[in-house]
């Protein structure tokens, strides 16, 4: 697992209070990890903070799974 994937996983575990083993690449924040719409807003903010990037709203709407987040950040993160 890449460094970015590890950091994404850590943030998801912390913010959603879920077991690490549930945070798989295909896990959906809302369907699999118990997040609601406000949780996902906060998650995106946490990714922005951790990776020093700005995630525009239209991009944020496409980040539905752990893997979506990792892929977006691998492409856009200021520092990997």
């Amino acid at each position: 697992m890449s460094d970015i994937a590890e950091r994404v996983k850590k943030i998801v575990v912390e913010h959603l209070g879920v077991d690490a083993e549930k945070v798989t690449e295909n896990a959906s924040f809302i369907d699999d990890l118990g997040a609601d719409s406000l949780d996902t807003v906060e998650l995106v903010m946490a990714f922005e903070e951790e990776f020093g990037v700005e995630i525009p709203d239209d991009a944020a709407e496409t980040i539905l799974t752990v893997g979506d987040a990792t892929k977006f950040l691998e492409k856009n993160a200021a520092q990997a």
């Binding site: 406000l38 807003v41 906060e42 903010m45 922005e48 903070e49 700005e54």
Partner: peptide
């Protein structure tokens, strides 16, 4: 404002 939590108000 982009750093304000969505949980701030509720």
């Amino acid at each position: 404002p982009r750093r304000l939590s969505p949980f701030f108000i509720p």
